[in-house]
Simulated scan of single mutants.
Amino acid sequence: MDDWTTSHDRVLAQRNAGGWMFLLEATRDLRTTGAVAPSGRALARRLTDPLHGHGPRPLDVLEAGAGTGSVTRTLVSRLSPGSNLDIVEANPRFAARLRSLVGARPHPDDGTVRVSVHHALVEQFDTDRRYDAIVSGLPFANFTPGQVETIMERYLQLLRPGGTLTYFAYRGTRLARTLTAGRSDTHRHREVEETLAGYQRRYATGCWTVWRNLPPAKVWQLSRPAHCPARTPARPVTAGAPR
């Protein structure tokens, strides 16, 4: 029996289980999980909207930091038969849950979306494939500027020319850190935002706020232009923290 099911009761059961698992992982380590609840459906739809711009052809798609699969479900439902979806998840318990979901056949009558789960840090993910779209659920606000730069450069390396990258940041995080965190963490967060702003100035093609999410989130869409090689990060970096 498929885990990716259209049965209303089973979908609700899966989402409820995923929500409790996400909360448990946030309790273990909020810094690397990045939130206390999975992404909502409105946020998942906005993150995956760029898929429509590629037309009905099969696509190669990468999802990084998939968590319990709340965005993954929307991705699979929007991909054409014959598409490939690689999921990279650093949290071993999330990765195990995702593997239990990938036997689905969202298009049982006319083809299958091939889904593979990789337990790894995305900046260390070894593949020769290049992607039409990348959807990132990584909590950049919790990383160092060097980690963010390494991940963003890896994304650009993995994108085909004309490919799209979508990622999100929760609104109000700078104010929250200013009020609750120490000076060094506030400074780190500001530097992360400045690092991301540099990529937004060079590559952004859209930005939206999803108010119907807990908490509300800002979604950025970036596109790699043709003949635009990825840069080598200028600063020494360490491996990014798992989600």
Score class of each variant (00 low, 15 high):
residue 106 P to E: 06
residue 12 L to Y: 06
residue 150 T to R: 13
residue 211 W to D: 05
residue 74 T to F: 00
residue 131 Y to I: 07
residue 214 L to W: 08
residue 17 A to V: 03
residue 111 G to H: 05
residue 66 A to Y: 04
residue 75 L to K: 00
residue 212 R to Q: 15
residue 27 T to Q: 06
residue 96 A to N: 13
residue 181 A to N: 04
residue 93 R to N: 14
residue 75 L to T: 07
residue 199 Y to M: 09
residue 150 T to F: 01
residue 73 R to I: 00
residue 211 W to E: 08
residue 151 I to E: 07
residue 27 T to S: 13
residue 207 C to H: 06
residue 36 V to I: 12
residue 160 R to Q: 15
residue 243 R to A: 13
residue 197 A to T: 09
residue 162 G to S: 11
residue 16 N to D: 15
residue 233 P to S: 05
residue 110 D to V: 06
residue 55 G to D: 03
residue 234 A to E: 10
residue 10 R to N: 12
residue 165 L to I: 06
residue 139 P to Y: 01
residue 120 A to M: 04
residue 45 R to P: 01
residue 135 V to R: 00
residue 221 Q to L: 12
residue 6 T to Q: 11
residue 11 V to Q: 15
residue 75 L to Q: 01
residue 149 E to K: 01
residue 72 T to L: 07
residue 110 D to R: 12
residue 76 V to E: 03
residue 216 P to F: 06
residue 99 R to W: 01
residue 22 F to L: 09
residue 96 A to E: 15
residue 65 G to S: 02
residue 97 R to V: 02
residue 176 A to P: 00
residue 95 A to F: 05
residue 203 Y to P: 01
residue 239 A to L: 08
residue 54 H to S: 07
residue 161 P to F: 06
residue 235 R to V: 10
residue 26 A to L: 03
residue 164 T to N: 14
residue 108 P to R: 02
residue 218 K to I: 04
residue 18 G to D: 10
residue 156 L to S: 09
residue 225 P to S: 05
residue 188 R to Y: 03
residue 102 V to I: 15
residue 102 V to D: 15
residue 200 Q to G: 08
residue 159 L to S: 09
residue 96 A to R: 14
residue 181 A to G: 10
residue 84 N to G: 13
residue 106 P to Q: 11
residue 136 S to Y: 00
residue 197 A to Q: 12
residue 138 L to D: 03
residue 167 Y to P: 00
residue 133 A to Y: 00
residue 211 W to L: 12
residue 239 A to R: 11
residue 38 P to E: 13
residue 118 H to N: 14
residue 39 S to G: 12
residue 190 R to N: 11
residue 222 L to I: 06
residue 61 V to G: 09
residue 4 W to P: 02
residue 221 Q to T: 11
residue 196 L to C: 00
residue 1 M to S: 13
residue 89 E to S: 08
residue 23 L to A: 15
residue 48 T to V: 07
residue 217 A to G: 12
residue 91 N to Q: 14
residue 227 H to C: 15
residue 152 M to V: 01
residue 219 V to D: 12
residue 169 A to T: 10
residue 166 T to G: 04
residue 178 T to K: 10
residue 239 A to H: 13
residue 229 P to A: 01
residue 190 R to M: 06
residue 93 R to H: 14
residue 149 E to V: 01
residue 70 S to Q: 03
residue 125 F to N: 01
residue 118 H to C: 07
residue 202 R to H: 11
residue 51 L to Q: 02
residue 180 T to M: 13
residue 51 L to I: 06
residue 48 T to N: 03
residue 42 A to E: 13
residue 56 P to H: 04
residue 3 D to R: 14
residue 109 D to G: 09
residue 111 G to P: 07
residue 134 I to M: 04
residue 211 W to R: 13
residue 208 W to I: 09
residue 98 L to G: 05
residue 28 R to S: 03
residue 116 S to Q: 14
residue 108 P to G: 04
residue 185 D to Y: 00
residue 136 S to F: 05
residue 107 H to A: 08
residue 159 L to M: 13
residue 43 L to H: 01
residue 118 H to I: 06
residue 34 G to P: 07
residue 84 N to M: 11
residue 17 A to W: 02
residue 53 G to T: 02
residue 168 F to G: 02
residue 57 R to E: 14
residue 206 G to Q: 12
residue 41 R to F: 11
residue 134 I to A: 05
residue 147 Q to D: 04
residue 201 R to A: 14
residue 47 L to S: 03
residue 11 V to K: 10
residue 68 T to S: 09
residue 74 T to L: 05
residue 6 T to P: 02
residue 7 S to G: 08
residue 164 T to F: 01
residue 229 P to Q: 10
residue 62 L to W: 11
residue 38 P to I: 04
